[in-house]
Simulated assay, not measured.
Amino acid sequence: MAPRIKDGDAIVAVSGKWVSYAHTLFAYAAFFSALIVGMALHFHKIVQNEHYGYPDEWFPSVSATIGDRYPERSFFQVFIAITSGPRFALVFLWYLLTSRPNSTLPKVVAGVGLFRTLTCGGWTYVTSTDDHDWHDIFMISYLVATLPWTLGCLALSPKNRRAVKYRKIMASLFFGTLVPLIYFFIQHKVHKVPGATTAYTRYAFFEWSLVLFDVGFDAVTALDFDSFEFVVRDVNGVSRGYVQWLPK
């Protein structure tokens, strides 16, 4: 319900769930706009790896798609930069939602959430082409931090059965995907499996699945954040504006 305010007091009010919507939209746009542009412009180049190329490998990894070529790299970087605003807001709202007196876990989870956001910026703007080692360090740090973030969010989830159900599904899919991901990476990197088995192509599919499940896990916050509302208030009454409410 909208807060009771004086005429001209509030400029705009936005439901908190729009933070989740914006985060999900721009995060997916970052990855999949790069994939579409890359497949259209540089298909043979981005499916090429250190051992094999097309037709042995026929689907690009996430790193090859977002970091190796222009303009797909720029599509990814622009959209992921836009995503950072909703991302910081999402971590902040989750902390407000779960914070309790004398409870340390919400602070730890919020700190991990901020760390993940910063490491995401690391592997976004330090591409595998720029510096492969640092790109991998940021990426591995991000993936490692995903474990305490996911488990912490599950432990702190409000009593919303629908949200808890979807979080458990997304978390199970994410961590379940890591097993075949690691297996096919070893097949590619160590055993150099080529041809019909296409180890790196299969690895790439599981890598893209991680993107879907990672963003999907945080998208569930829309079911919790509809209890929040951002209000821009003109305390001096100089705007002469009227109250605008984004739809619930």
Rank of each mutant, 00 (worst) to 15 (best):
G241I: 08
V47T: 13
L97P: 00
S239I: 03
L154V: 05
H132A: 12
D56Y: 14
F225L: 12
D226R: 13
T129P: 00
L41C: 10
D226G: 06
T127W: 02
H23T: 12
S33F: 08
A145V: 06
L90Y: 04
W149H: 13
L156A: 07
Y242C: 05
F184M: 08
V47A: 10
M170V: 05
F185H: 15
C153H: 07
R240T: 11
L41D: 12
M39V: 15
S172T: 13
R87K: 09
G53F: 08
A29Y: 09
A27V: 10
F174G: 00
Y203E: 05
F75R: 03
A204Y: 02
F59H: 05
T150F: 09
I182E: 07
G122A: 08
V144K: 01
D234I: 01
L223C: 04
T177V: 10
A30R: 03
H188N: 15
E72I: 11
A199P: 03
P60H: 06
A219I: 07
D234G: 02
V91I: 14
A64N: 13
P3G: 05
E57G: 00
A155H: 10
L147C: 09
C153E: 07
C153V: 09
S227V: 14
S84P: 04
C120F: 01
P194K: 12
F230M: 10
T150V: 15
L93Q: 07
F228P: 07
Q48L: 13
K248W: 11
V14M: 13
E57Y: 12
F206M: 10
T65R: 05
M1R: 12
S15A: 13
S99K: 14
L105M: 10
Y21P: 10
F75K: 03
P180S: 06
G38E: 04
L147E: 01
K6S: 11
L41I: 14
F31P: 06
